[in-house]
């Protein structure tokens, strides 16, 4: 029937146009609200316990949602090279209130929190508090002690506390024996590059978040370069002892038999040799955590 077909055609066209309109206006709404407006709700929540009470038994589902929000928030801030991560701790706190057994939220979340900006929120005290909360809820999970020790060592520089954390972790049944080794190193060798490299390597191997892994890798390459540079500078001093002046190029040193090949950094670029005998990396941007990289 004609009129029925007309109504169908009109309704179909309207449906398409109106839905397109809804998508367009939805984008505008999203733009006006910004990506973080949903997250800001956490600022109005007095505690995750209240949220849990209202979640009607679906708290672990809600915890997953909040964890996703935290990751998303961290990722977007990280990408903007921001130094402000105001919502991160409230998000993580509510996540772990909702599901106290969500280990990843403590392990990865504490690294988000503890690192200095722009890699992280620069809130190592809150990070330590978060992990301690995790340990209270999951005392049998020894790797949380590793996280705690890591934060104390790397960001809080509290070697005593780091030692205690590793030691306590090593006493948990099932803990791997290197926890005890780490505990011993904490008191002996503060600021030891080898220890730092070992810790970052563990982070790199256990954490799955790609931002954190990226940072860990940066730390590892920087540490590697630092060791290389220390060795090379020792050889340039050796060269001066023998020839009375610093070498002007790597080939000088190769001719003198001090080096076999031109030394390359972990990225495959040649190290730069300065006239004063100091050694640098080609591209300091790739070695953000190198001390005195300039």
């Amino acid at each position: 029937m004609k009129s029925q077909r007309r109504v169908t055609a009109v309704a179909l066209v309207l449906l398409v146009v109106l839905f397109a309109g809804s998508v367009a206006s939805r984008r505008q709404v999203d733009r006006l609200r910004g990506t973080e407006s949903t997250l800001e709700d956490v600022l109005y929540l007095s505690s995750g316990k209240t949220v849990k009470r209202f979640s009607l038994g679906y708290s672990s589902l809600l915890a997953d949602i909040y964890w996703t929000r935290a990751v998303q928030y961290f990722g977007s801030r990280h990408m903007q090279h921001s130094y402000r991560y105001d919502l991160l701790y409230p998000l993580l706190d509510i996540t772990t209130d909702l599901d106290p057994n969500l280990i990843v939220a403590y392990e990865t979340g504490s690294i988000f929190l503890s690192q200095k900006g722009p890699e992280g929120a620069g809130q190592p005290d809150k990070a330590a508090a978060l992990v301690e909360k995790g340990i209270r809820a999951n005392p049998e999970y020894w790797r949380l002690y590793f996280s705690l020790g890591f934060i104390h060592y790397m960001d809080r520089h509290d070697y005593k506390a780091a030692h205690d954390a590793f030691l306590k972790g090593s006493e948990v049944p099932g803990a791997l024996s290197w926890m005890k080794v780490m505990a011993a190193r904490m008191s002996e060798k503060a600021d030891d590059p080898e220890t730092a490299a070992y810790l970052w390597k563990t982070i790199y191997e256990t954490v799955t978040d790609k931002d954190v892994r990226g940072t860990a890798l940066l730390h590892l390459t920087s540490l590697h370069a630092e060791a290389d540079i220390a060795g090379l500078e020792q050889r340039t001093r050796l060269y001066r002892q023998e020839f009375g002046a610093f070498p002007s190029s790597w080939s000088d040193m190769m001719r003198a038999g001090i080096l076999q090949t031109i030394p390359l950094d972990p990225n495959g670029d040649a190290y730069k040799l300065s006239p004063d005998g100091s050694v640098h990396v080609q591209d300091p941007a790739k070695f953000r955590f190198l001390i005195n990289s300039q």
């Binding site: 029925q4 109504v7 169908t8 309704a11 179909l12 309207l14 449906l15 109106l18 839905f19 309109g21 809804s22 206006s25 939805r26 505008q28 709404v29 006006l32 609200r33």
Partner: peptide, 27 residues
């Protein structure tokens, strides 16, 4: 502007859903 945009969104979205309802119900 958020009040305005949300209004526009709600109108579009509900009108689209109603158009879909008509489309189904008509036949």
């Amino acid at each position: 502007s958020l009040v305005l945009m949300n209004t526009i969104y709600a109108v579009f979205y509900s009108a689209a859903a109603t158009a879909a309802a008509v489309l189904i119900f008509e036949r």
